[in-house]
Write a protein that binds this DNA or RNA. Structure first.
Length: 212
DNA sequence: TTATAGATTGCCT
DNA sequence: GGCAATCTATAAT
């Protein structure tokens, strides 16, 4: 079964707030050897680069955040709280350093692989949203489920067909999202610019990490 | 069901 | 030295 092509770079070369709305419902795809692990993106946060006090890019370029200052459509993966990785996709051009933090996935393929990566053994007979939610609902969880870390994945081009980490359009065989509306809410876990509503999520989707 | 504390390390001042 | 774009277990209600 052929996979759809990754979204093109110009999809990301826009204001992060505009990209955020359209990224919801798209599929984050991970190749793990011969296996495909995939999840539907149901929650993201926009970071407005150099103009956004909550963004890593706000204080200027450092070794840690340099990917943010590069071209759009690349993975910015960082390590935080001494134990978690988080993944962003860079937006805009090389001048503004905007990005989108991926906060939650609805698993669509590779449940067993996600469970193993999360050390939550997957039992097919016991499949229910409450259990599935533990796989990739949250920025640290989704990186763990897809085995995404800074060492291997920071800077990867998610628009390249041969990439083991890419974003593709919704898969035909997956039920549609028409019943979910995009809503905005405040971002999670930040102290600066905490009032800005730059979190975008699918209202009512059970895989969102924090309800609006 | 909600609230709180502790884990644990790399980055930047 | 301080703290972080988080998660989990445990306690309290």
């Amino acid at each position: 079964m052929p996979l759809p092509p990754p979204l093109p770079r110009n999809f990301y070369e826009r204001d992060p707030r505009a990209v955020a709305r359209e990224l919801l419902g798209k599929i984050l795809l991970r190749r793990m050897g011969r296996k495909i692990v995939a999840g539907r993106i149901v929650e993201v946060e926009a970071y407005m680069g150099k103009n956004d006090p909550a963004a890593h890019a706000f204080a200027g370029m450092t070794n840690r955040n340099s990917v943010l200052f590069g071209p759009a459509g690349h993975a910015y993966v960082y390590f935080t709280y001494g134990m978690h990785h988080c993944m962003n996709i860079t937006c805009e051009g090389t001048d503004r350093a905007g990005s989108l933090l991926l906060r939650a996935l609805e698993p669509v393929a590779g449940f067993r692989e996600m469970g193993e990566a999360r050390k939550l053994p997957w039992d097919k007979e016991d499949a229910n949203p409450a259990k599935l939610r533990l796989l990739a609902s949250g920025p640290g969880r989704l990186c763990q489920a897809l085995r995404i870390d800074r060492q291997h994945d920071n800077g990867k081009d998610v628009t390249a067909r041969d990439s083991d980490l890419q974003v593709v359009d919704a898969l035909k065989e997956v039920p549609t999202l028409e019943k979910y509306k995009v809503v905005t809410a405040t971002r999670i876990g930040i102290t600066k610019a905490a009032e800005m509503k730059l979190r975008y999520l699918l209202a009512g989707n059970p895989y969102v990490s924090v309800k609006a």
